[in-house]
Amino acid sequence: MHEIHLKRVYEAAEPSDGVRVLVDRLWPRGIRKADLPYDVWAKEVTPSSELRTLYHRGEMPFAGFREGYAEELEASEGAAAFAERCREWLKTQNVTLLYAAKNQQENHALVLAAWLRQKIG
């Protein structure tokens, strides 16, 4: 089986990326749609606006955000369907989750990747 990778949208695409999935709710700043190589824009697996706002305002620590977002993913039929799509893609190629966040150590894409790895096994 292939692997789930993470990459900022500002990094160059590579053949080893496999399926490139944009996992941000909003289009990344400073990039024209024609200039971002991606295969799928998975808005259905992004954190809720409420959760995202609390975290970005500093009203919620990352640990709380991570827990809340994981709960949202567990309760989402769209996230379950996305996990199944990833399982199918991973049979033949890597899946690269694309995100725009500056913080590479604490962001929603890390939480999503961990959740997908748990679901897919």
Rank of each mutant, 00 (worst) to 15 (best):
L26D: 03
L26S: 07
L26N: 11
L26W: 06
L26V: 09
L26Q: 12
W27D: 01
W27V: 12
P28S: 02
R29I: 07
R29A: 13
G30F: 04
G30K: 01
G30Y: 02
G30W: 03
G30S: 07
I31V: 14
I31A: 06
R32V: 08
R32K: 14
K33W: 07
K33M: 10
A34P: 05
A34D: 13
A34W: 07
D35A: 13
D35V: 06
L36Y: 00
P37K: 01
P37E: 06
P37N: 05
P37Y: 09
Y38N: 02
Y38T: 02
Y38H: 14
Y38W: 00
D39G: 02
D39N: 07
V40I: 12
V40T: 05
W41S: 00
A42W: 03
K43H: 08
K43M: 06
K43S: 02
E44C: 10
E44R: 10
E44I: 04
E44H: 07
V45G: 02
V45S: 02
V45H: 01
V45I: 11
T46E: 04
T46P: 00
P47W: 03
P47C: 02
S48A: 09
S48T: 05
S48R: 10
S49L: 15
S49G: 11
E50A: 14
L51A: 11
R52H: 10
R52F: 06
R52T: 04
R52C: 09
T53G: 13
L54F: 11
L54K: 08
Y55T: 06
Y55H: 11
Y55V: 11
H56E: 12
H56D: 07
H56A: 09
H56P: 03
H56L: 15
R57G: 15
R57K: 15
R57N: 15
G58Q: 12
E59N: 13
E59D: 15
P61I: 13
P61K: 11
P61Q: 12
P61E: 13
F62M: 10
F62Y: 14
F62V: 06
G64P: 04
G64Y: 05
G64Q: 10
F65G: 00
R66D: 05
R66N: 07
R66H: 08
E67L: 13
E67T: 10
E67W: 07
G68M: 01
Y69S: 01
A70M: 04
A70L: 12
